[in-house]
Design a protein around this nucleic acid. Structure first.
Length: 577
RNA sequence: GCGCCGGUGGUGUAGCCUGGUAUCACUCUGGCCUUCCAAGCCAGCAACCCGGGUUCAAAUCCCGGCCGGCGCACCA
């Protein structure tokens, strides 16, 4: 059977040093890959382009935090709870199921926030049996999608390998805000490894257990989701696949996609706000810039039920591949203030920023002070949370608080699912006039998150060309791992020596070049083509007379003569492409 | 995690049914030749996924594992 393009690419990638399966001599482990010498160069070039666009041009800054993350952080972020699937196994046929899904299938109960024991009790109570064979179900166990480890001797502190790089940024919010001199908006980048213990990783590099993410956390004022450079991108036409169209069964797959400018998409409310739209445009630019086929990119909005626990809107950049169809390569999510609020609550550290008003205001406000003698006795340890809650009330909330208290004689406040009843004598309220210059704001976060491994694979696939008698990778010169092969036409006279000197000269000037004198010239061109080398420099008889060489272009196979003295400048110019 | 199929040099394969350590081609390396797109000649490197069982003897038969493909499930 004819191999499909995926097989051809993975084969080429393996043979020529792009991608290898990890731990191969010990049998290998699914979900892990090695980047070989060329793969590493390619991936680094992709990341350089990412940095060029988001760090140099957008003015974001990159940080690097540990991949091992203590329990507390991921508990706060919701990953400890949301990343753990309860699984139950049939004692008879050994098939395993999601316990919560199974229960909901049979009984109309809400399984959210149930403990493993409670789930098991439900299974016993309603006598739920294996849907496949009717056998008895075993114990309900956790399956955690995060890799667990222990920190320090004795294993007293639990750690996880981070499931995303984002948390490292959120927990440094205070330091970052100070670095950016407390001015919104600002963007922070992190590029690095993340880990998800996938149940069944497959499809090579498409679903990995250890993978490289490039994430941007863009912190904005919650009420200012406009972008000052929006005008520069608003006319960009993008293929969009909005949620309502995806669910419309009357539309064909083709019709579900609409092409429109992102300016129009924002105006019509298809994209929630300018910032998501701006990042959609930038993402498209980045992907096209590294060489992803522009006709194989589309942006798909998440359906309400597939949204992550922290997001209110999310658009994926999907890239088309022959074997897997459209695959998610970038997710652009509005995470609101979910993460900062959570970390603020769990750590007890205020994660907000003071935003000055355009004009200072004089307002009537209330000063609400806790009567600690009473409150302390009633709420004990919870006093601290209540204190924080009250001191963080906005002007509007304060007003409501005071009004409700006067009307009902009590106020019920809800802090993270816990309710507290505040009575009149718990607080002292003063009405004061105050000049205020601004307010504390918990920023919202817009997060474009790039899956670098998937993008790398897509790029290889989109670059793969078969032409009569040869195979080549049509990688852009700026992205190609090796930039030039230097070849003596034949191994005679001074040709090898001059070619070797040219290779050294190119390397001294920062151009990655290789020398190859093995076999006929045609064979060497093919070798270079197959790994995507954009230029072959050939030293021939004429070189010996006038110190010129030929430069052969990979795609066209056309050759021009260039003086050796001009070669570095010539290539440097061409390598910008 | 379940089911089906598969796993032999770098790649593609022959051998497996019918046990006796491996075929061929390409690639690759060294040399010769070669003045522009996988030419030729000589020499060379290089493999039975792992573990256990049966047997005098296992690439071959049996069991388990790992890896890969497909289907199901999963994929905040």
């Amino acid at each position: 059977m004819e191999k499909d393009i995926y097989e051809k690419i993975m084969d080429l990638a393996k043979r020529r040093g792009y991608l290898w399966s990890s731990f191969e001599i010990y049998g290998g482990i699914a979900g892990f890959v090695d980047y070989g010498p060329l793969g590493c160069l390619l991936k680094n070039n992709i990341i350089s382009k990412f940095r060029e666009i988001f760090i140099v041009k957008e003015g974001f800054y990159e940080i690097e935090s540990p991949t091992v993350t203590p329990y507390e952080v991921l508990k706060a972020s919701g990953h400890v709870d949301n990343f753990t699937d309860p699984i139950v196994e049939c004692k008879n046929c050994l098939e395993s199921f999601r316990a919560d899904h199974l229960i909901e299938e049979f009984v109309d109960v809400d399984t959210e926030r149930k403990t493993l024991k409670e789930l098991e009790e439900l299974i016993r109570k309603y006598n739920i049996r294996c849907p496949k064979c009717g056998g008895e179900l075993g114990e309900v166990k956790k399956f955690n999608l995060m890799f667990v480890t222990s920190i320090g001797p004795g294993g007293k502190r639990t750690g996880y390998m981070r499931p995303e790089t984002a948390q490292g940024i959120f927990i440094q919010f205070k330091r970052l805000a100070q670095f950016f001199r407390n001015k919104l908006p600002f963007g922070v980048v992190q590029i690095g490894k993340s880990y998800r213990n996938e149940i069944s990783p497959r499809q090579g590099v498409i679903r990995l257990r250890e993978f490289t993410q490039a994430e941007i956390e863009y912190f904005v004022h919650p009420e200012r989701k406009e972008h000052e450079k929006f005008d520069l991108v608003k006319d960009e036409i993008v293929p969009l696949l909005p949620a309502d169209r995806q669910m419309d069964e009357n539309l064909s797959e083709e019709e579900k996609i609409i092409k429109m400018s992102i300016g129009e998409a924002v105006e019509k409310g298809i994209i929630r706000h300018q910032i998501i739209a701006y990042f959609i445009a930038l993402t498209k630019r980045f992907l096209e810039n590294i060489g992803i086929d522009k006709d194989k990119i589309r942006f798909r909005q998440h359906l309400p039920n597939e949204m992550a626990h922290y997001a209110i809107d999310c658009w994926d950049a999907e890239i088309y591949t022959e074997r897997f169809g459209w695959i998610e390569c970038v997710g652009i999510a509005d995470r609101t203030d979910y993460d900062l609020r959570s970390h603020s609550y769990h750590s007890g550290v205020e994660l907000s920023i003071f935003v000055e008003f355009d004009e200072e205001k004089e307002i009537e406000t209330y000063e609400i002070n806790l009567n600690y003698k009473v409150v302390g006795r009633v709420f004990k340890k919870d006093t601290k949370v209540i204190e924080e809650y009250i001191s963080n009330l906005s002007e509007k909330d304060k007003e409501n608080f005071v009004k409700t208290l006067e009307k009902d004689g009590k106020v019920i406040i809800k802090i993270n699912e816990k309710e507290f009843e505040i009575l009149k004598d718990y607080v002292e309220i003063k009405k004061v006039k105050k000049v205020i210059k601004g307010e504390k704001v918990i920023p919202h976060v817009i997060e474009p998150s790039f899956g670098i491994d998937r993008i790398t694979y897509c790029l290889l696939e989109h670059s793969y060309r078969e032409e009569d008698d040869r195979v080549y990778l049509d990688l852009k010169p700026s992205i190609a791992p090796i930039k030039a092969y230097v070849l003596p036409l034949v191994n005679k006279e001074d040709m090898p020596k001059i070619a070797m000197e040219i290779k050294e000269m190119l390397r001294d000037n920062g151009i990655i070049a290789e020398y190859d004198d093995s076999g006929a010239i045609g064979r060497r061109y093919m070798r270079a083509d197959e790994i995507g080398v954009p230029f072959c420099i050939t030293v021939d008889g004429q070189t010996l007379e006038d110190r010129t060489v030929t430069v052969r272009e990979r795609n066209t196979r056309e050759q021009i003569r260039v003086r050796i003295d001009d070669l570095v400048d010539y290539l440097k110019e061409r390598l910008k492409e």
